[in-house]
Simulated scan of single mutants.
Amino acid sequence: MMSNESIMVSKFEDALLSMNRISASKMIAGEFTGNNAFELISETISPALERIGYKWESGEIALSQEYMACKICEEIVETILPANSSERKDMPVIGITTLGDEHMLGKRIVSSFLRANGFNIHDYGDMGPENVSQKVKEDGVEVLMASTLMLNLAYEVKKLRMIFDREGIKTKIIVGGAPFLFDRDLWEEVGADAMAVDAMESVNKVYEVLEVSQ
Protein backbone atom coordinates (compact mmCIF):
# COMPACT_ATOMS: atom_id res chain seq x y z
CA MET A 1 0.00 0.00 0.00
CA MET A 2 1.33 3.42 -0.97
CA SER A 3 1.77 6.06 1.75
CA ASN A 4 -0.04 9.38 1.50
CA GLU A 5 3.31 10.99 0.70
CA SER A 6 3.94 8.56 -2.19
CA ILE A 7 0.45 9.13 -3.54
CA MET A 8 1.02 12.89 -3.47
CA VAL A 9 4.31 12.53 -5.37
CA SER A 10 2.69 10.26 -7.98
CA LYS A 11 -0.22 12.62 -8.53
CA PHE A 12 2.10 15.59 -8.76
CA GLU A 13 4.30 13.72 -11.24
CA ASP A 14 1.26 12.90 -13.38
CA ALA A 15 0.24 16.57 -13.43
CA LEU A 16 3.75 17.58 -14.49
CA LEU A 17 3.95 14.99 -17.26
CA SER A 18 0.59 16.13 -18.62
CA MET A 19 1.93 19.71 -18.40
CA ASN A 20 -1.07 20.69 -16.29
CA ARG A 21 0.23 23.83 -14.56
CA ILE A 22 -3.06 24.56 -12.83
CA SER A 23 -3.44 21.11 -11.30
CA ALA A 24 0.21 20.93 -10.22
CA SER A 25 0.03 24.40 -8.67
CA LYS A 26 -3.20 23.60 -6.82
CA MET A 27 -1.69 20.45 -5.32
CA ILE A 28 1.23 22.35 -3.82
CA ALA A 29 -0.90 25.34 -2.81
CA GLY A 30 -3.25 22.97 -0.98
CA GLU A 31 -0.36 21.69 1.16
CA PHE A 32 1.41 25.03 1.64
CA THR A 33 1.08 26.43 5.17
CA GLY A 34 3.24 29.51 4.72
CA ASN A 35 6.39 28.11 6.29
CA ASN A 36 6.83 24.61 4.84
CA ALA A 37 8.22 25.49 1.40
CA PHE A 38 11.43 23.48 1.75
CA GLU A 39 9.49 20.54 3.16
CA LEU A 40 7.26 20.52 0.06
CA ILE A 41 10.32 20.81 -2.17
CA SER A 42 12.14 17.91 -0.53
CA GLU A 43 9.14 15.63 -0.05
CA THR A 44 7.06 16.26 -3.19
CA ILE A 45 8.60 18.50 -5.85
CA SER A 46 12.14 17.11 -5.93
CA PRO A 47 11.08 13.41 -5.77
CA ALA A 48 8.62 13.94 -8.63
CA LEU A 49 11.30 15.62 -10.74
CA GLU A 50 13.73 12.82 -9.99
CA ARG A 51 11.19 10.24 -11.17
CA ILE A 52 10.68 12.24 -14.35
CA GLY A 53 14.44 12.47 -14.84
CA TYR A 54 14.77 8.69 -14.60
CA LYS A 55 11.95 8.25 -17.09
CA TRP A 56 13.76 10.49 -19.58
CA GLU A 57 17.01 8.55 -19.06
CA SER A 58 15.18 5.27 -19.76
CA GLY A 59 13.53 6.69 -22.89
CA GLU A 60 10.00 6.64 -21.48
CA ILE A 61 9.40 10.34 -22.00
CA ALA A 62 10.69 13.10 -24.28
CA LEU A 63 13.31 15.65 -23.22
CA SER A 64 10.71 18.37 -23.77
CA GLN A 65 8.52 16.78 -21.07
CA GLU A 66 11.37 16.83 -18.57
CA TYR A 67 12.15 20.44 -19.42
CA MET A 68 8.54 21.58 -19.06
CA ALA A 69 8.19 19.70 -15.77
CA CYS A 70 11.22 21.58 -14.45
CA LYS A 71 9.81 24.91 -15.66
CA ILE A 72 6.45 24.31 -14.00
CA CYS A 73 8.15 23.38 -10.73
CA GLU A 74 10.37 26.43 -10.99
CA GLU A 75 7.28 28.63 -11.29
CA ILE A 76 5.59 26.90 -8.34
CA VAL A 77 8.65 27.28 -6.12
CA GLU A 78 8.81 30.98 -6.97
CA THR A 79 5.28 31.37 -5.56
CA ILE A 80 5.93 29.54 -2.27
CA LEU A 81 9.55 30.60 -1.89
CA PRO A 82 10.15 34.00 -3.58
CA ALA A 83 13.71 34.95 -4.54
CA ASN A 84 13.85 37.56 -1.77
CA SER A 85 12.52 35.19 0.89
CA SER A 86 14.48 35.10 4.14
CA GLU A 87 14.24 31.30 4.00
CA ARG A 88 16.67 31.34 1.07
CA LYS A 89 19.42 33.21 2.92
CA ASP A 90 21.36 30.06 3.82
CA MET A 91 21.18 28.52 0.34
CA PRO A 92 24.46 28.38 -1.62
CA VAL A 93 24.92 31.09 -4.26
CA ILE A 94 24.96 29.40 -7.68
CA GLY A 95 26.08 30.66 -11.10
CA ILE A 96 25.52 28.90 -14.42
CA THR A 97 27.00 29.39 -17.90
CA THR A 98 27.83 27.62 -21.16
CA LEU A 99 31.18 29.43 -21.49
CA GLY A 100 30.45 30.53 -25.05
CA ASP A 101 28.41 27.53 -26.20
CA GLU A 102 25.18 28.73 -27.83
CA HIS A 103 23.39 25.42 -27.12
CA MET A 104 21.26 26.36 -24.12
CA LEU A 105 18.81 23.50 -23.50
CA GLY A 106 21.05 21.57 -21.10
CA LYS A 107 21.76 24.72 -19.10
CA ARG A 108 18.07 25.62 -18.99
CA ILE A 109 17.10 22.21 -17.63
CA VAL A 110 19.79 22.31 -14.93
CA SER A 111 18.91 25.90 -14.05
CA SER A 112 15.19 25.11 -13.75
CA PHE A 113 15.88 21.98 -11.71
CA LEU A 114 18.08 23.92 -9.28
CA ARG A 115 15.52 26.72 -8.99
CA ALA A 116 12.82 24.12 -8.37
CA ASN A 117 14.95 22.93 -5.44
CA GLY A 118 15.03 26.41 -3.91
CA PHE A 119 18.35 27.74 -5.21
CA ASN A 120 18.77 31.29 -6.48
CA ILE A 121 20.66 31.20 -9.78
CA HIS A 122 22.81 33.81 -11.50
CA ASP A 123 22.46 32.92 -15.19
CA TYR A 124 25.45 34.14 -17.21
CA GLY A 125 24.27 32.75 -20.55
CA ASP A 126 27.07 31.95 -23.01
CA MET A 127 29.57 34.35 -21.41
CA GLY A 128 33.29 33.56 -21.84
CA PRO A 129 35.78 32.75 -19.01
CA GLU A 130 37.11 36.29 -18.43
CA ASN A 131 33.66 37.82 -18.05
CA VAL A 132 32.36 34.88 -16.02
CA SER A 133 35.21 35.23 -13.53
CA GLN A 134 34.37 38.90 -13.07
CA LYS A 135 30.66 38.20 -12.53
CA VAL A 136 31.42 35.38 -10.10
CA LYS A 137 33.41 37.80 -7.93
CA GLU A 138 30.72 40.50 -8.11
CA ASP A 139 27.90 38.11 -7.19
CA GLY A 140 29.75 36.11 -4.54
CA VAL A 141 29.06 32.85 -6.37
CA GLU A 142 30.04 29.77 -4.36
CA VAL A 143 29.47 27.18 -7.09
CA LEU A 144 29.58 27.71 -10.85
CA MET A 145 27.81 25.22 -13.12
CA ALA A 146 29.28 25.03 -16.63
CA SER A 147 27.29 23.12 -19.26
CA THR A 148 28.73 22.62 -22.74
CA LEU A 149 27.75 20.59 -25.79
CA MET A 150 30.90 21.18 -27.85
CA LEU A 151 34.27 19.66 -26.91
CA ASN A 152 36.32 22.76 -27.73
CA LEU A 153 34.21 24.82 -25.34
CA ALA A 154 34.57 22.19 -22.63
CA TYR A 155 38.24 23.15 -22.61
CA GLU A 156 37.23 26.72 -21.75
CA VAL A 157 36.83 25.36 -18.22
CA LYS A 158 40.60 24.99 -18.07
CA LYS A 159 40.98 28.70 -18.90
CA LEU A 160 38.42 29.53 -16.25
CA ARG A 161 40.27 27.48 -13.64
CA MET A 162 43.52 29.26 -14.51
CA ILE A 163 41.83 32.64 -14.02
CA PHE A 164 40.31 31.52 -10.72
CA ASP A 165 43.70 30.31 -9.48
CA ARG A 166 45.46 33.47 -10.65
CA GLU A 167 42.96 35.77 -8.97
CA GLY A 168 42.43 33.69 -5.84
CA ILE A 169 38.78 32.96 -6.61
CA LYS A 170 37.55 30.08 -4.43
CA THR A 171 34.38 29.35 -6.42
CA LYS A 172 33.87 25.65 -7.10
CA ILE A 173 33.27 24.51 -10.69
CA ILE A 174 30.85 21.72 -11.61
CA VAL A 175 30.69 20.71 -15.26
CA GLY A 176 28.20 18.78 -17.38
CA GLY A 177 27.20 18.12 -20.95
CA ALA A 178 28.01 15.72 -23.78
CA PRO A 179 31.85 16.02 -23.80
CA PHE A 180 32.01 15.08 -20.13
CA LEU A 181 29.65 12.14 -20.64
CA PHE A 182 31.74 10.78 -23.51
CA ASP A 183 35.00 11.15 -21.56
CA ARG A 184 34.39 10.58 -17.86
CA ASP A 185 37.91 11.79 -16.99
CA LEU A 186 37.61 15.09 -18.86
CA TRP A 187 36.24 17.04 -15.87
CA GLU A 188 39.45 16.39 -13.95
CA GLU A 189 41.60 17.18 -16.98
CA VAL A 190 40.07 20.66 -17.31
CA GLY A 191 40.35 21.39 -13.60
CA ALA A 192 36.72 21.17 -12.50
CA ASP A 193 35.81 20.18 -8.96
CA ALA A 194 33.12 17.72 -10.04
CA MET A 195 30.93 16.52 -12.90
CA ALA A 196 27.16 16.16 -12.79
CA VAL A 197 25.73 13.56 -15.16
CA ASP A 198 22.33 15.26 -15.24
CA ALA A 199 20.17 17.88 -13.58
CA MET A 200 19.20 15.52 -10.77
CA GLU A 201 22.81 14.92 -9.82
CA SER A 202 23.65 18.63 -9.91
CA VAL A 203 21.92 19.26 -6.58
CA ASN A 204 23.96 16.62 -4.74
CA LYS A 205 27.17 17.77 -6.40
CA VAL A 206 26.66 21.34 -5.16
CA TYR A 207 26.61 20.17 -1.57
CA GLU A 208 29.43 17.68 -2.15
CA VAL A 209 31.91 20.26 -3.44
CA LEU A 210 30.97 22.75 -0.74
CA GLU A 211 31.36 20.09 1.96
CA VAL A 212 34.88 19.28 0.73
CA SER A 213 35.84 22.96 0.95
CA GLN A 214 34.64 23.35 4.54
Results as ranks from 00 to 15, higher is better:
Ser42Thr: 04
Met91Tyr: 02
Glu13Trp: 07
Tyr207Trp: 11
Met145Gln: 11
Glu31Arg: 13
Leu210Met: 06
Lys135Ala: 14
Gly59Ser: 03
Gly177Leu: 03
Lys26Ile: 09
Thr44Pro: 01
Lys11Arg: 13
Gly118Ser: 02
Glu39Tyr: 13
Val110Thr: 15
Lys135Tyr: 07
Lys158Tyr: 08
Val212Asn: 00
Glu13His: 13
Arg115Pro: 05
Ile109Gln: 07
Pro82Asn: 14
Pro179Ile: 01
Leu144Pro: 02
Val209Gln: 03
Val212Met: 01
Gly191Met: 04
Leu153Ile: 08
Lys26Gln: 15
Ser112Ala: 15
Thr97Phe: 00
Glu5Asn: 15
Gln65Val: 08
Met145Glu: 11
Asp183His: 00
Ala69Met: 03
Met104Ala: 15
Thr98Asn: 10
Arg161Leu: 05
Leu149Tyr: 15
Leu63Ile: 12
Ile76His: 01
Thr79Val: 10
Glu39Asp: 14
Glu201Gln: 11
Met104Ser: 13
Met145Gly: 15
Asn120Asp: 12
Asn131Arg: 14
Met195Gln: 08
Lys11Gln: 13
His103Ile: 12
Ile163Tyr: 07
Ala178His: 12
Met145Ser: 13
Lys137Val: 10
Lys107Val: 05
Val190Gly: 04
Val203Gln: 05
Gln214Gly: 14
Arg166Thr: 12
Ile121Met: 06
Arg115Glu: 13
Asp165Leu: 07
Phe119Val: 05
Asn84Ala: 11
Asp198Lys: 02
Lys26Met: 13
Glu66Thr: 10
Glu60Arg: 08
